[in-house]
Computed example of a mutant assay.
Amino acid sequence: MKAAKFLIPIGVIAIVGVLSSVFIVDEREKALVLQFGQIKSVKEDPGLAFKIPFIQDVVRYDDRTLSLDTDVVEVTPSDDRRLVVDAFARYRISDVVQFRQAVGVGGLRAAEDRLEGILNPTIRAVLGSDGVTSNTILSADRAELMARITTQARQRALPLGLEVIDVRLKQTNLPDQNLDATFARMRAEREREAADEIARGEEAAQRVRALADRTVVELTSEATREADIVRGQADAERNAIFADAFGADPEFFEFYRSLTAYERALQGTNSTMVMSPDSEFFNYLRSDQGLRSEEGESR
């Protein structure tokens, strides 16, 4: 019984020791075995691994591709048109030993702070270099600029044990204080273009109206000319008829013209005319003229 009392604690301690000496390395991570803060071994292959219990510790690091969203960076291209750039990077821990020595116990948080301190100046340097304008950043040359940023950031991140895989520019905008001025300039340009279009439309409308007015005048003049010609021909024909009639019987023609004059002059029920009694206008109203006419007819 006394032996069993000693064997049970010893067995428990042995089991705890064995369990403490065994750990599992996942395929998505790498592990460092530390002894009093010093690196004793690196476990990169997945599976079971061993360490000295109670003396050695295991620190695990993610072996997958990680992403980092940087803070908004304000850059000034060579055309002095300031832009606000929002970028992100994809990276991985390539050397866990160098990574541990560089960031210490800070881990990924400290590493990302230092990586962001590399990315932001690199973005400013590349986008603010000679020959890079705001139009270049917003054009298809943007891919070449991102490749330059990735190459420079990769070189500067190697001492941290990090491999920068890619750096991308998510958004490129104007600063808030410049947006109102930019929108006002764009609005002024659109209003100017609209005014030009309106002016061109008014000019075209005036040309159409002038052409229509000229066509109306030409058509009216042509119609008036043709009407005058027709009227002149009719008057000439009428005068020819009157001349023929007058030549056939001048006295009858004179009598007919007098009757027409009477009809036009003595209209209505209250017509008054003040003329000399011996006026030729009344020749055919006098009885003696009528008698002479009758005598002429009898002869």
Rank of each mutant, 00 (worst) to 15 (best):
A3D: 00
A3N: 02
A4N: 05
F6V: 13
P9S: 10
P9G: 10
I13N: 04
I15Q: 05
S21P: 05
F23R: 15
V25S: 13
L32W: 14
L34P: 01
Q35G: 15
Q38K: 15
I39Q: 02
K40F: 07
L48D: 08
V58T: 14
D63C: 03
S67C: 02
S67R: 10
D71H: 09
V72P: 05
V73E: 14
T76G: 00
P77M: 05
S78L: 01
V85P: 05
V85H: 08
I93L: 10
I93N: 07
D95R: 07
Q101A: 07
G104L: 10
V105D: 12
L108D: 15
G117I: 02
L119F: 12
T122H: 05
L127N: 07
V132K: 04
I137L: 03
L138S: 07
L138A: 10
S139F: 00
A140K: 12
E144D: 11
M146Y: 00
M146P: 01
A147V: 03
T151M: 08
Q152Y: 03
A153P: 02
Q155V: 04
R156G: 01
L162I: 15
D166H: 11
D166M: 05
D176I: 15
N178M: 13
L179H: 03
L179G: 06
D180Y: 10
T182E: 15
R187G: 12
R187W: 00
A199Y: 06
R200S: 10
G201W: 02
E203P: 00
Q206L: 09
R207M: 06
V216F: 03
A223Q: 14
A227R: 11
G232R: 14
A236F: 15
E237P: 00
R238S: 11
D244Y: 06
F246A: 09
G247W: 06
A248E: 08
D249Y: 09
P250K: 13
F252C: 01
R257P: 03
S258F: 02
A261K: 13
G268D: 12
N270A: 12
M273R: 09
M273S: 00
E280T: 06
E280G: 08
Y284W: 08
L285V: 00
G290W: 01
